[in-house]
Nucleic acid binder design. Structure first.
Lengths: 185, 185
DNA sequence: TACCGTGTGTCAGATAACCAACACAACTTG
DNA sequence: CAAGTTGTGTTGGTTATCTGACACACGGTA
C-alpha cells in the first residue's frame, strides 16, 4: 500500500529543503514560505500535508524513529553492544537528527524512541532474567528506558561532546546493576 | 519561463530510468513499460510527453547538445585547445552520451551538434582569417564541421578506443591545413 | 497613530499525473 | 493452427499539485 509517487516526492523535497535550511542557516527561524521556495512546491501543497513547521518536524522525528527501528531490526545486535550500537546510531547514522529534534525543543523524542523500539530492545536487555515476571519486565523497562532517554536527551542538548563509547558504557553500567535485584540467587 | 516542477521531475526520472536500463542491461531492447516501472510513473504520463522510446532518445540527444553548448559558453576556450577540449567533453563529461546516441543509431547527432554550436565554434576556428568573406566562412565551416562530425561519429562507433588527444590533434591538423588556402599572403 | 512589507492560512479553478480498462499487434507455446 | 503472453497506444474519469487571489496577523517605521 505504497502511497502515490507524487505524494512521496513532494514530502521528500519538503523534508530535504527544511533540513538544508536548518543546516546552512542555523539560528534562523525557518518559514513555510522558505521551505516551499527551496522545494519548488506550492505553499498550498505544503498545507495539504502539514499544519505548520512544527507538524513537519514532528513527522521528521517519526521518520527518524522508524529508521532507527529498521536499523535495529536489520542487524539485531546482541548483549552489551546493544547500547553502544544504539548510541552510535544516534551519533553517526542520524547526524542531522539532533538538528530538528532540538529545533522546536521537542523533548518527548527520546521517550517515544524507546517506546517505539520497546519490542526490539526489551528482549535484549532482559536476556537471562529467568525469574522476572512480565509485569516486572514492563516496569523495569519503563524505568530503564526513561533513564536512558533522559541521559541521551541531555547528551544531545549539550552538543554530544562525550563520545558514544563513554555514554554507552555509562548506560550499560546503569542497566547491568539492576541484574542483582532480579537475578540474585 | 521555467516549466512546471511536475513536468521537470517526471521527465528527469524518465531519462534517468532509461539511462539506468541502458547502462545495466546492454544488448537488451528497452521497452516503454520498463522505463515507466523503473521511474514509478504511469505509462500514460510517458505518452503525454513522448511518442515512443525513439522520441525520448531524441530529446536526450538534444539535452546533451544543450549541455555541451553550456560548457562551451561557460569556459570559452581559445585557439588550438578548442578541438581537444571539444573531444574531451564528448569523452569525459558525457560518458553516457555514446550509449543513447548509438542506441537507435542516430547518425545525425554529430551533424546537429556542430550545427547547434556553430556560433561558438566558428569564431574560434576562423580567428585571424581576415581575408575570408562571410559566405566563404559558411562554406568552410560546413565543410570542416561535416568532416569533424564524421570523424567523431566513427570514433564513437568504434568504442572510442583512440585517446581524445589523438583525435583532437588529428582534427586540428585537418583544420589548420586550410589556413593556407584562405590566408596565403 | 497609520502605513507598509512579509509571512500565514485558505479558497476556487486550471493543469499534471494518476488509475483502470480497452483494442490491437507481435510474439511464444501447445 | 489456436490460445496465451507481453508490450503498445489510447480513452474517461480521479487525485495531486499548481496558480492567483484573498483576508488576516505581525513587526518595523514614518
Amino acid at each position: 500500500m505504497k502511497s502515490d509517487r507524487r505524494i512521496r516526492y513532494t514530502k521528500k523535497v519538503i523534508k530535504e529543503s527544511f533540513m538544508d535550511l536548518l543546516l546552512n542557516r542555523p539560528s534562523h527561524k525557518i518559514t513555510v514560505k522558505e521551505v516551499c521556495e527551496k522545494a519548488e512546491i506550492n505553499r498550498t501543497t505544503f498545507y495539504s500535508y502539514y499544519d505548520d513547521i512544527h507538524s513537519l518536524t514532528k513527522e521528521m522525528q517519526n521518520d527518524s524513529i522508524s529508521d532507527i527501528r529498521q536499523y535495529l531490526l536489520q542487524y539485531s545486535v546482541d548483549g552489551d553492544d546493544m547500547i553502544l550500537y544504539f548510541v552510535k546510531i544516534l551519533q553517526n547514522s542520524f547526524p542531522y537528527a539532533s538538528k530538528y529534534i532540538l529545533y522546536d525543543n521537542n523533548s518527548k523524542y527520546f521517550i517515544r524512541l524507546f517506546y517505539e523500539c520497546k519490542d526490539l530492545i526489551l528482549s535484549n536487555w532482559l536476556k537471562g532474567h529467568v525469574k522476572i515476571t512480565p509485569i516486572q519486565q514492563e516496569w523495569l523497562y519503563t524505568f530503564l528506558a526513561s533513564g536512558c532517554a533522559g541521559i541521551l536527551r541531555t547528551w544531545f542538548m549539550g552538543g554530544m561532546k562525550e563520545s558514544a563509547e563513554e555514554i554507552a558504557s555509562f548506560l550499560n553500567q546503569l542497566i547491568k546493576c539492576h541484574d542483582v535485584i532480579f537475578d540474585a540467587k
